[in-house]
Design a protein around this nucleic acid. Structure first.
Lengths: 352, 352
DNA sequence: GGGTGGCACTCTCCGTCCGAGAGTGCTAAC
DNA sequence: GTTAGCACTCTCGGACGGAGAGTGCCACCC
């Protein structure tokens, strides 16, 4: 057996063992558990080499070895074999999704729950966003003399609402007239289009148009901020978080709603699964965690992100396959239920 | 000094001291810290009496005293004096609220954040609900050949949305015709009214009407389930949760979305603040926590609940005042922004 | 008889110590 | 290159003990 090949195998075994047990793994342990045909002394020699090269470390002199970020990275890159999820598992998930397919909130929730459960870590799923909202319909409903509810329907079936306060009493008839006019003027436009628009508007209409534009702009800005989180408990239960301050640390990372700053959604490639191990994440707070994430949907149309967050000691193969499958599935769901008639101009979209 | 009066004073001091320090408080500590004119031995005697009567307990023989649920209850009932919040504090909060008054979600969020921060514990704020939703307007917007977005506007400015799938292609023109007809037929009705309605509907309209009814029913059922939570960290940081299992315990209580089962929203009186101390809550899981809660809004119109959750060791006076003030303020907000002109009379179902 | 000083007693907390156990690294031999 | 052997290191957990805080009770005092 090639010596570097054997070294790789040992690294692989250390990782499997450590991922399962959370306990530093010693030379004798792997020899006996995987009955290798070499002695523990040989394994120790190899381990020393692996440590020299930075793939594993030592909590202290007389402890077993623990994979380093670099070790995991090499494992993910070269050693592990990603298994496709078993057909039944896929089928079960698919079924659950089609059950809950109507209500977006429920649907995203479900995705997070399924993911968290499958990978036994925390899952984050963002609400899908379109790159630039376009107005489809506006509706004004009277509430009080001087206030009305504005409901915006955007393309891709996104609905936004806001209470408007008018400087003078406005009745439903006026509101209807205004919404008719605004619909005519603004349907199909983006926030920028509306800003540039030259349409003649009354004072009140202008008031409303402003509110529309602001809401659309804030919707466009808010990408990735609206995320569902599930499975925090999975992570907290892991032995690495047994102490109270570790737990608080993790909760700090998760509870704040600026998750999107900690997960590198922005740098996500258009497709494929991204793995970020420990200190590879630029955020200091994330150095003890790994993130596996993927975009779902169509970058030109509706898209969001799903991510798994857990300790660096994570089952990468399963996690990656699951994230991959779920992101595909959610893409399909988006196309089926939410996308406009006009198919986005890409020619690799699998037929539904 | 009357002896029972002195005993009450000592209980009061024990509670203040313990609430601040989280450490069992001894006789000498109280004497010196509040320079009472009696010796520690006398205080010990009084403490023995208080313990006999069940107001305080002993973690172990040679430890100081800790208030029992009964002790806190007596304190809340008879000893503490609820101070009104300082005017500036009220003003600051009021100001924040009027800043964020438009968007309901933001507004509820803010309420939870303000409350959690003010009382240094966890805060729960439910979305306001009306006792029975009434349809105000329905809108149908085409998405694809066979699917459309249904947007329901209820009285009290609540908006619900759902994607509908039709068995046959339907274009926007048909959708508009349908929504016009349904608006005519159903405006102002409750789910029950719609169920009873005798209006002639086409097959497709019937399909939609069904969806409307289901959504309204689910909205009516869902009271109190939709809640915002803030300040979990405040609670976790307290010394009583320093150990990992205590933390997990608390997280279990909070993370699950069935908070409404643990907080006795249903038994809430129509007005006033309810305090529930430790084992007074029927739910076993809640025996270590106290809850201070209040309804906000108008029981006949829109109403919701706000609650504070923390360890039984809690600053009851401040917490109660804050909850009281916030519930009043939120009631005002509801009336100002969200309530219909016509207060919902009981028997106004328009004939169809 | 209530209040008080005194004192023995109890229990926790924390630092120290020690032995068992696990694992390493090195060396010498195969 | 591999291996057996062995000294060495470090952690973990239990035992121990002293310091400190607090109680409970008794005898005494006003």
């Amino acid at each position: 057996m090639d010596s570097s090949e054997r070294r790789a195998r040992i690294l692989s075994l250390i990782i499997s063992e450590y991922v399962d047990s959370a306990v530093p793994v010693g030379s004798e342990a792997i020899r006996s558990r995987y009955n290798l045909s070499v002695s523990s002394a040989t394994i120790r020699n190899e381990m020393a080499r692996l440590e020299e090269d930075g793939f594993i470390t030592h909590p202290h002199t007389s402890a077993g070895r623990v994979p380093s970020d670099k070790g995991y990275r090499y494992y993910v890159e070269a050693l592990m074999q990603e298994r496709d999820l078993p057909w039944e598992v896929k089928q079960t998930i698919r079924h659950q999704f089609h059950q809950a397919g109507r209500d977006e909130e429920e649907w995203i929730h479900l995705a997070a729950a399924v993911l968290a459960r499958a990978v036994e870590n925390a899952a984050v799923v963002t609400v899908p966003q379109s790159p630039e909202s376009r107005l489809k319909r506006i509706e004004l409903v009277s509430i009080q003399d001087t206030s009305a509810l504005m409901v915006l329907v955007m393309q891709q079936a996104r609905v936004k609402q806001q209470v408007l306060i008018f400087p003078e009493p406005v009745d439903q008839e006026q509101l209807t007239a205004m919404s008719n006019h605004l619909n005519q003027a603004f349907a199909g436009l983006s926030a920028a289009d509306i800003r540039r628009s030259q349409v003649q508007l009354t004072q009140l209409e202008w008031h409303v148009a402003n509110a529309i534009r602001e809401m659309m702009e804030s919707a466009d800005r808010g990408t990735y901020d609206d995320a569902y989180l599930d499975g925090v408990r999975n992570v907290l239960q892991k032995p690495e978080f047994a102490s109270a301050d570790k737990m608080l640390n993790l909760l700090d990372v998760l509870e704040q709603r600026n998750l999107s700053r900690l997960l590198p959604f922005r740098e996500m490639p258009e497709d494929g699964v991204t793995v970020m191990i420990g200190a590879e994440n630029e955020q200091d707070q994330m150095h003890d965690y790994s993130v596996v994430l993927s975009r779902y949907g169509n970058p030109d149309g509706m898209s969001g992100a799903i991510a798994v967050l857990g300790p660096t000691r994570m089952r990468y193969p399963q996690t990656i396959s699951t994230v991959r499958f779920l992101s595909q599935l959610m893409g399909e769901m988006l196309r089926t239920y939410y996308e406009d008639d006009a198919p986005p101009p890409r020619d690799d979209a699998p037929a539904t």
